[in-house]
C-alpha cells in the first residue's frame, strides 16, 4: 500500500494527492502595459502609413539587380573582414599571452592603436595613404601606384578587417584565459607541445566563450560595412542611395536597405545559435534543444496536459 502511494506521483501525477486549487495572483500591470504598447505601435504604424512615403517603391526595387549586387558585396565584405578579424584576433591574443615580451608588446600596441581610433577615420586614412606611399613596391613581385593598388574594395577590407582584429583579440584573450589551467598542465604532462596544447586542448574549449560575442561581432560588422560607402565601395547602402537619387525615392530606399540589413542579421542570428550549440558539446550533460525541438516539446506537453483538463471540462 505504502509502495503504491510512493510511486504514484512519479508515474501519474494527476492521480496523486489532491492538487492545490488556488486563485492565481492577477497581474493587472501586464494587461495595462500590453494595451499601452499595442496602442503606441498602432500609432507609429499609422503615422508612417500617412506620411509622404511612396511605399510601393520598396517592393518594386527590393530585388533590383543593383540592390542584390549591393547585398552580395555587403555579405562578401562582412565574411572576408570577419575572416581577417578572427585570424588576426586569435594571432594577437596568443601573442599577447605569450611569454615573449616583444610579441606581447607588439600585440598590445596594435590593439591600443586600432581600438583607440574610430573605424571611419581608419577607412579614410587607408584610402588616402597614397599621400605617404606614392608607390607600392614589393620587389620583383609587384609594383604599382598606391591609388591603383588601393582599390575601394581593398581599402574597405583592410580598414574593417584590421580594426576588427583588435576587438577579436580581446574576445579571444578572454576565451583563452577562461580555460582552466589544469587543462594545459594535463596536456603538457602528456608531452604535448605548446602549440599542440593550444590547438587541440585550449582553443576548442575557449570557443565556447569566444563564439557568442563573435556572433555579435559578425552582426555588428554587417552593419558597419555601411560605413564603407565613404570610400566609394558600392555595397548595399550605397546601392540603395544611388537608386534613391535616380528614382526620386531616397527615403524609401533607406527603408529598403534597413529591411535587407534586418533580414541578414536575423539569418546570422540563427546560424550563431547552432554554432553555440555545437561548441557546447561535452560541457553539459545534454545539449540545449533547438527551437524546433522546443516547439515540438511544447506541443507534446500541451497535448498531454490537455487530457486531464479536457476530462474536467
Amino acid at each position: 500500500m505504502t509502495v503504491d502511494i510512493d510511486k504514484t506521483p512519479a508515474d501519474t501525477p494527476p492521480a496523486g494527492p489532491e492538487a492545490i486549487k488556488a486563485i492565481p495572483v492577477r497581474h493587472y500591470g501586464r494587461y495595462v502595459s500590453a494595451v499601452v504598447a499595442i496602442a503606441l505601435l498602432v500609432g507609429v504604424v499609422y503615422a508612417f502609413s500617412q506620411g509622404k512615403i511612396n511605399w510601393d517603391a520598396i517592393p518594386d526595387y527590393f530585388f533590383d539587380d543593383r540592390i542584390l549586387d549591393g547585398v552580395g558585396k555587403t555579405l562578401l565584405l562582412t565574411v572576408l573582414s570577419m575572416v581577417i578579424g578572427i585570424v588576426g584576433g586569435v594571432l594577437l591574443a596568443v601573442m599577447r599571452l605569450s611569454k615573449n615580451p616583444v610579441t606581447s608588446s607588439i600585440a598590445w600596441f596594435y590593439i591600443w592603436f586600432f581600438r583607440g581610433t574610430p573605424v571611419l577615420v581608419q577607412l579614410i586614412v587607408w584610402f588616402n595613404l597614397g599621400l605617404v606611399f606614392e608607390y607600392i613596391n614589393l620587389g620583383p613581385f609587384y609594383k604599382d601606384e598606391w591609388s591603383d593598388f588601393m582599390t575601394p574594395f581593398l581599402t574597405a577590407l583592410l580598414g574593417l578587417g584590421l580594426n576588427e582584429a583588435a576587438y577579436m583579440a580581446e574576445i579571444c584573450r578572454a576565451g583563452l584565459l577562461s580555460v582552466d589551467e589544469g587543462q594545459t598542465e594535463a596536456s603538457h604532462a602528456l608531452g604535448m607541445s605548446h602549440s599542440k596544447t593550444l590547438r587541440r586542448i585550449v582553443i576548442p574549449q575557449a570557443m565556447r566563450v569566444i563564439v557568442p560575442p563573435t556572433g555579435n561581432e559578425v552582426i555588428n560588422m554587417l552593419k558597419t560595412t555601411s560605413l564603407v560607402s565613404v570610400v566609394q565601395y558600392p555595397e548595399l547602402l550605397r546601392a540603395a542611395q544611388d537608386i534613391g537619387q535616380t528614382s526620386g525615392a531616397p527615403a524609401e530606399m533607406l527603408f529598403l536597405a534597413a529591411a535587407w540589413y534586418l533580414l541578414m542579421t536575423s539569418i546570422f542570428s540563427i546560424g550563431q545559435y547552432y554554432l553555440e550549440r555545437y561548441y557546447a558539446r561535452g560541457s553539459s550533460r545534454s545539449l540545449p534543444a533547438t527551437p524546433f525541438q522546443k516547439i515540438r516539446a511544447n506541443v507534446l506537453s500541451l497535448s498531454s496536459r490537455s487530457k486531464p483538463t479536457g476530462g474536467k471540462a
Binding site: E185, Q205, R281, G282, S283
Partner: peptide
C-alpha cells in the same frame, strides 16, 4: 604519466 587530483580530463 601524471594523474591529477581534479582529473583534468579534456571535457570536449
Amino acid at each position: 604519466g601524471m594523474v591529477f587530483q581534479r582529473f583534468n580530463l579534456f571535457p570536449h
